[in-house]
């Protein structure tokens, strides 16, 4: 069954822009406001971060946004409260990104059910191992028609990439370099890796993320894939904003 992510990629659209924002940030009730502003300004996909106390794959900027969101009172229960009814306003694909522990605590099936109920399209759970997903959770993701998006890196072997491509739904998240989020990767140095991905003719679309921070890096990455993902740079832009709507408008205009 096609969901919003599949439809977007099936439309043949190029330079797809996916923006990450931590839920409950900068203020607790900004979650949906930020999403609305992103959609209004032509962003294609929203990746919503579920804040966690110990985000291992994140650099300081996203870590701090998580800490702040948790201090604001964010939790998974709160997030689903905030998301209730958001599909009356937002029609672009929404992906939740987060670490496995809060999801386990919530209960995996309850969590997936809530995602489906509220209208979430897919998930990124970087610390869920592929083998465990395949063994324990794949049927549940299919039951709720939710995509699980896996990460690949420049160090991921071809055989493993093929396996990831087989298990992924939605798209493959190609991390631009082996790093935590927010490193200023030089996209020019990664061309061999991007070309390798392209030449493999994967069945899933590919989005490039980590280190995408402005128009130059967005264009450089998007040229090699279906589009690119911006996280840290967006968090930095809005963390001290006094006018979220205006800041988001300027930010997206600066990238597009």
């Amino acid at each position: 069954m096609q969901n919003r992510i599949d439809q977007l990629f099936a439309s043949g659209k190029k330079n797809i822009l996916n923006i990450y924002c931590t839920a409950g940030f900068p203020e607790l009730n900004d979650t949906v406001k930020v999403m609305e502003a992103l959609q209004e300004n032509g962003v294609d996909i929203i990746e919503l971060g579920m804040p966690f106390s110990d985000p291992l794959a994140d650099g300081p900027v996203i870590q701090d946004s998580s800490t702040r969101a948790l201090q604001n009172g964010m939790s998974l229960h709160k997030l689903f409260e905030q998301l209730a009814g958001f599909r009356s306003k937002i029609h672009i694909p929404v992906i939740l990104m987060g670490y496995l522990n809060p999801v386990l605590r919530f209960g995996v099936e309850e969590f997936l059910q809530k995602c489906a109920e509220t209208g979430v399209d897919g998930l990124i759970l970087p610390d869920l191992p592929m083998a465990e997903y395949e063994r324990d959770y794949k049927p549940l993701f299919e039951k709720y028609n939710l995509d699980l998006i896996f990460l690949v890196t420049p160090e991921t072997s071809e055989a493993r990439l093929r396996k990831i491509d087989e298990l992924s739904r939605g798209f493959i998240y190609a991390v631009s370099s082996s790093s935590t989020t927010g490193k200023n990767t030089d996209m020019g140095n990664q061309e061999a890796y991007f070309a390798r991905l392209k030449n493999m003719q994967l069945k899933n679309p590919v989005m490039i993320g980590f280190g995408i921070r402005d128009k130059a890096t967005f264009d450089a990455a998007a040229a090699h894939a279906n589009g690119a993902i911006i996280g840290t740079a967006f968090i930095k832009a809005i963390e001290n904003s006094t006018d979220l709507k205006a800041t988001i408008k300027d930010f997206v205009a600066g990238v597009r």
Binding site: S53, L56, L76, N101, V103, D127
Partner: peptide, 21 residues
């Protein structure tokens, strides 16, 4: 503690009901 994941291991850990360590 309750079962969960800390430092990439599934084990017992002290956490909130929301799964924060």
């Amino acid at each position: 503690g309750k079962i969960g994941i800390i430092h990439a291991s599934k084990t017992l850990l002290m956490q909130t009901d929301d799964g924060q360590i």
